[in-house]
Design a protein around this nucleic acid. Structure first.
Lengths: 134, 134
DNA sequence: CTGCATCCGATCGGATACTG
DNA sequence: CAGTATCCGATCGGATGCAG
């Protein structure tokens, strides 16, 4: 992409990248959205199970943050013993597009760590069923 | 997206999201790639100028990291006084897709902070000239 | 099961001053 | 101009244990 600056035709005050990153750049946030949105793992303990390294303290903090920022919503199913499912709301679903671009990027550039056959590929291959693109 | 889990047809060991985030989730990294890739601001001092809050110490650290991870490349033009331009290489250009998705997301969900007219919009509007999508 | 409380080391990154 | 060096407070997040 050499040459002219690529400038927005509509000027923004702070770059929207900055605002988006404030919430999405967290170490665990995207993985939690992945659990709920893609893996359909929407229960506290299950999330801990499928996300190695994540601890209950951090998961709690991030769920609260995602909730208060309007990404997810809790469904309290029963309270004794507690049974909660977490669901994406609109903003959270939109964030999955960012997630897809991360998966795409990672699949291409970190295939050695990611795939067992170490072959680089595009997301369309791992997720052929997904409505991707616009 | 209710219903079935959306699973990859090709299993990955760690989720590629995780590997991508290790480098891209940094507070400043994406903004530096934006400076070079979109704004065509490729000089040290200029980057500090267009990226409020960024300090020279952190910029140095991140440039070194992006360089050793294969996102950018320095062009030493002269050494006294020093004159350096930073350019994206392939991996860095690919990372712009992630950046676009962040801009897209931010333009939609943080329009109050981002646009002066506070109207939400898609990236296609601010960047009509960009080859976006696949 | 779904969390919360406490503790604490590691890291991040802002402020400031300095160098070739 | 393009960085380095030093300092240090704030935050992040891992470990562990406990609660409803």
């Amino acid at each position: 992409l050499p040459g002219q600056p690529i400038l927005p035709s509509v000027p923004f005050k702070p770059c929207p990248t900055r605002t988006s990153l404030e919430v999405l750049s967290n170490k665990w946030t995207m993985l939690i959205l992945r659990d709920i949105g893609f893996l359909k793992v929407d229960r506290f303990k299950q999330m801990l199970g499928v996300t190695p390294g994540l601890t209950s303290r951090v998961l709690t903090l991030k769920l609260r943050e995602l909730e208060s920022d309007g990404y997810i919503r809790p469904l309290e199913l029963q309270s004794n013993p507690p049974l909660v499912r977490w669901g994406l709301i609109k903003k959270g679903e939109d964030a999955l597009r960012v997630l897809m671009s991360l998966i795409d990027f990672g699949s291409k550039w970190y295939s050695e760590e990611v795939f067992e056959d170490k072959r680089s590929r595009s997301v369309m291959e791992p997720f052929p069923s997904l409505p991707y693109g616009r």
